[in-house]
Every structure is written in C-alpha cells, then in structure tokens.
Amino acid sequence: MLDQSVLARCNLFGVLKNIEYLAEHDPESAAFLPERPLSIRFAVHGGPLATLRLNPAKADMLAGRHPATVVLGFASPEHFNRMVSGKANPIPLKGLHRLAYLTGPFGKLTKRLEGYLRPDEATLRDPERFRRSAEMTLYAAMFSLVEIANGDPQGRRSAARIPDGVLQVSVAGSVGVRIVARGGQLSATKGYDPDPRALLHFASLQAAADIFSGKLDTYTALATGDLEMRGYIPMIDNINPVLDLVAEYLK
C-alpha cells in the first residue's frame, strides 16, 4: 500500500524537482521557462508544502513555504498525485493572472519531463537525450528514496537500521548524489562527498539506466562490475529494501 502523502513528496521532491535539471541541461526546455520570475507554491492539504522557483534560466524546488506568485491548492495528497498523473486539476488559490503560463508553457515543461522519465525508443537512441533521461531517472529515484525512507512506514523500519554516514551514489562520467544517514533519517544532495562511508557506483550511464528500468538485475551487474559497492555495506544493505519501494512508488 502506497502512502499517498509519501507519494506526493516523491512527486514533488523526486519527480518535479527534475525541472531544475531541465532548466539547466535541456536546451529545448528553455522556451518553456517564464520570461519573468515566477514561484509556484504547491499547498497540499494534509501533505507537503513546496515552492518551485522559476526564472528564465533556472529552476529550484524548495521544501516549505516561500514567497509565491502562484499558489496551487490540493484537497489532499491523493488529489495532488492525481494531478501529477494528469487525472485532476489543481485549485488555483492565488496568481490567476499567471494562469496562462501554467496551462501553456508550464504544461509543456512537465510534458518534456515525462518524456524523459518514460523515454520512448527515439529518446533512448539519441545519446544526448538518453543521457538526460538516465540522469533524471537517477535523481528521481534517489530523491524519492529519501522521502520513502523518512515517511513510508516500511521504509522507516529499514531506515532505522541504516548506520550513520554518507553513501555516495555515482555514475561513471555522469552525476553523483550523496545520501546522508543520521539517526535513521536520510537526506540527499547532488554532488560528491570527499569522505563517504559507502559507495554505490555504476560503471556507465547505460548500466544505471538498465538497472533502473529492470533490464539488468543487480546481481548480474555486481558480478560483472557494471555496478560496484564498497565501504560499509550495512548502509547499502538496509537501503536496498527502500530502493525496492522506490520502484513501487515511481511505477
């Protein structure tokens, strides 16, 4: 059973957070960023609060309440999650004058996001688009992992057993995410740690993509060196059941 509030957090801080990536790395997305700065607050009743800050060159997903030009309300986490899967509309609470941006360019932006996270054959064949797709998938998974570990009841049980330290997740020639465990709570940031306690390293972006799409199982990948773990393995051992949950949440 998915916890809808945790799913809402995954959608915000795992999936929609990738708008940051689009703004930075996807030239075609530039056309869909607003000409004037704009902040969208997602106010989910009984769920998370987040603010997406957009300007012509950059995007930031922030947790919590920040000044916002537009406020979108949701009656419940379910409502928000239905909106993300395209089956419901938000309740605009503020900023009606910017609604045209939301229904127009912003909708295109989220379409591009979806195109990368559920890539078709053409995307996978184009090396640059494949790279973006794989990197965004990795980010979505890792940032959702944190939400599930901190919020999902089963995830929390596993997380409680994760020893303190930094787990460095990295992909050769690509991106890294550092996952910090403290007292059974996880947090994640993009980038690299100088002194991680454990490492989970994908030998290539292709290997990472194949593992995340289920084409390559981790046992084969570990044996062949496509995936490598090192360091204090109890960290990874107890993160693995949470990773299984990520697959369920992001299905």
Binding site: T220, L222, A223, G225, E228
Partner: peptide, 27 residues
C-alpha cells in the same frame, strides 16, 4: 556465473554468492 544467472536466482544463492560474500571488488 553468467550461465548460472539464467537458471539460479542471484546466480549463487545464499551466503556463498559474490554479493552476500562481500566480494569487493567481485572480479
């Protein structure tokens, strides 16, 4: 081991498998 992966879950099931045995690096 590559043959095994086709017919045995995890290739080598249980504590003697390269993952459970902490063969780091496996090779």
């Amino acid at each position: 081991f590559k043959r095994a992966l086709k017919v045995l879950p995890a290739g080598i099931p249980g504590h003697l498998g390269p993952v459970e045995s902490q063969f780091i690096p496996t090779r």
